[in-house]
Amino acid sequence: MSTSNIDMTTDRLTFARALYDAVPLYDPKRAPVDLDLTDNTNLWGLPPHAERALREIPVARITRYPSLYAAELKEALASFVGAKPEYLVTGCGSDDILDSAMRAFGDPGSVVASSEPSFAMIPIFAQMNGLTYVGVPERPDHQPDLDALLAAKPRILYLCTPNNPTGALLTQETLERAVREAPGVVFIDEAYAEFSGVSAVELAMRVDNLLVIRTMSKAFGLAGLRVGYGIGAPALVRDVEKSRGPYKVNAMAEQVALTALREDMAWVHAHVALAVENRERLAAALRDRGYAPLTSHANYVCVPVAQAIAVGQALRARGVAARPFAGLPHVGDTLRISVGPWEMLERFLVAFDDATANVYKGVTS
């Protein structure tokens, strides 16, 4: 004999946590297309030595558990960012670091404040962890409204630099004030730092309330292997490590990431430079068409485009995808276009010209 644990009036499990009722599954609603410029990953592919390591990984690395807390990877990452290994924590992508850090430092109901627009998962992670999310629209100069953010008295203050989706870089003055005046911990998301050449890592080694979060998904081309890391004071990253638990970087990901850091840095630097060059070339091509792309310090271009949702749909109908955003503060509708090899961007521009011509004539396909 079985009994139902489903509340038929709400279609939910009777023993489920109520706070999860409002938590959506992440669904970007992106059907596959021939040319996808939505993810800001490395469109040049995998670094060559990392690819070799992926193909040649010993079976024994897969049949056994990975290292507890990725000590060897921490050493390589510390060398890369100019820190000490004890200032590092690793995880299954930067998402894992963010989620674990919210659990580590947020008591139920405490405030997570974020400038908007920014990384869409922040309010979701806050909900998942029983925290209160406060979003504050950025200023017209695309800097965070720090007065309003600090007025929320956040236990966790989240800022992204270069910011996603605008590509704006946080000023040093804003960063230092945030760390100085925040009542709790400051998270600085540097997923795109390699493309800006600017980082808060040095500051994170001097204070005890700053966690810099980074990833190997973008410049290193390892998005599918999910390797993220954070840099902060040893006491701070220890608590994040307690929250995330052991074995969170799988053995294959650790081996490939180590190889990339040790043998592929020339490739990574060369393709970062190519991304920056093509970013500026794409922005110039858009300006030539009468558009005003935002200044970007990342590997994408965010450009105001009227009826961006319709334009995005028309692009998809032509086998090309860019990420549309509706009604960004002080900007309006925009498209965010990942940067890759120029032949990809040339194809985007051809599709973009055709899509906008049709949308603005009232035809979407």
Rank of each mutant, 00 (worst) to 15 (best):
Q313A: 11
A314L: 04
R281N: 01
D288Q: 05
V272Q: 07
L274H: 09
V311M: 06
R279M: 04
D333H: 15
R281D: 07
A266P: 00
A314W: 01
Q307E: 13
Q307G: 03
A266N: 11
A284T: 09
G340E: 03
R289S: 07
E277Y: 06
A298E: 00
R318C: 00
Q255A: 14
M344W: 02
R318I: 01
A314G: 09
N299G: 03
H269Y: 07
A283E: 05
M265S: 02
A292C: 05
G319S: 06
D354M: 06
P293Q: 05
P329V: 13
D288K: 13
Q307Y: 06
A292M: 07
L349Y: 13
E263D: 10
N299D: 08
A260H: 09
A284Q: 15
G290Q: 14
V276H: 02
V331Q: 09
A273F: 01
V331T: 15
G312V: 03
W267F: 14
R347T: 14
V350L: 11
A292W: 00
Q313R: 13
C302F: 05
A270Q: 15
V303L: 07
F348S: 11
R347H: 10
L328N: 12
V276S: 00
V311K: 09
N278V: 04
Y300L: 08
Q313W: 02
H297P: 00
H269T: 09
A285I: 09
Y300V: 01
H297A: 14
